[in-house]
């Protein structure tokens, strides 16, 4: 296990290096000249030149990259270019918990919904319940999330008034209030993921249920519920867990629509805002953080296979 972990970490470092370089290069594709962004239009060329010099933009690319990477490794992502000038890391630190919480809550809800639904579907595959759930899943998948979000806001916030429309209460302020405000946005995120997980898990469950060990468990007199939860779920969960990791990583940076709908100060809004204003240090820093989280999440997922399947654990010893 130790050697596998070491190998994995090495791979991750390589991936992160590539991602960081990509991120860094990406910024040179931004249409705005950072000097113009900072000073505004209509200044003397010498003034722009001075800013460029100060930001180190005149250095050769490799030097700039290494400089940036060196600071990034020590946790210094620089300052924002666009005023008000603040530490990039502070801005990320403010936005990240919102996104992580939304993603984790959304995923949690999706699992909570999809596991029973998939089991119900797979238990009598092809039956009425299965067909209804499958149709529902496709229906949900085909609705764009902004539409689903609007509908959910309309029903639960505007009509029923059960949940607030658009506010964010930090977890540190009040856990109850925080969950109350996070519920609807998490639900919107959970919808599409639920549909996806249900489909994947259902199919894998159906395959597992054909196995002899299911028949053997039945022949021992175990109940259908016991067989479903204790025998079938774990061997069937690999595809779903993989998908979960990908979704979780992806959601951290791409809950923009939900953040926008609910006016939430998450990573998506942060990156989009920075890109629009040409705040290149902000974009670089935020994207790098997202990439690190993505890669770490997937490392955890990889390690979880060993927990789920003892044969994998054994193979790496």
């Amino acid at each position: 296990m130790g050697r596998t972990l070491l190998k994995r970490v090495g791979e991750l470092a390589a991936v992160l290096l590539i991602v960081s370089f990509g991120t860094f290069m990406l910024v040179s594709l931004l249409p705005n000249d950072p000097a113009v962004v900072i000073l505004g239009e209509g200044r003397e060329p010498a003034e722009y030149e001075a800013v460029r010099e100060e930001l180190g933009l005149n250095d050769p690319l490799p030097v700039r990259y290494l400089d940036w990477l060196g600071s990034a490794v020590t946790g210094d992502l620089g300052e924002t270019v666009v005023p008000p000038v603040t530490d990039v890391l502070d801005r990320v630190a403010a936005a990240l918990p919102v996104s992580v919480e939304l993603a984790v809550l959304g995923m949690g809800m999706a699992l909570l919904f999809s596991i029973p639904l998939a089991m119900w579907s797979a238990y009598r595959a092809g039956g009425r319940v299965d067909r209804v759930i499958s149709a529902g899943a496709f229906g949900v998948l085909s609705v764009p999330s902004f539409l689903a979000g609007l509908l959910i806001i309309m029903v639960f916030a505007n009509q029923l008034g059960w949940f607030p429309r658009a506010q964010w209460v930090r977890l540190s302020e009040s856990i109850g209030d925080n969950l109350y405000h996070a519920f609807l946005p998490a639900l919107v995120i959970a919808l599409a993921e639920t549909a996806l997980f249900t489909r994947i898990l259902r199919n894998d469950l159906i395959t597992t249920l054909q196995e002899d060990f299911i028949l053997a468990a039945k022949a021992k007199g175990m109940s259908a519920r016991h067989i479903m939860f204790s025998d079938a779920l774990r061997p069937s969960s690999f595809s779903m867990i993989t998908l979960l990791g990908i979704s979780l990583g992806r959601l951290i940076g791409s809950t923009v629509i939900v953040e926008y709908l609910f006016a939430l100060p998450g990573m998506g809004s942060l990156v989009i805002g920075a890109a629009n204003t040409g705040d290149f240090t902000m974009v670089q820093g935020a994207v790098l953080v997202i990439a690190v989280i993505y890669v770490l999440t997937n490392l955890l997922i990889d390690l979880s296979y060993g927990v789920l399947d003892p044969r994998i654990r054994r193979a790496h010893v």
Binding site: E211, D212, F213, L215, A216, A217, D231, R234, P235, L308, D309, P310, R311
Partner: peptide, 11 residues
Amino acid sequence: FQDPMTALNPV
């Protein structure tokens, strides 16, 4: 069962 490789739950 016929095949003890598949009649036991691997996990």
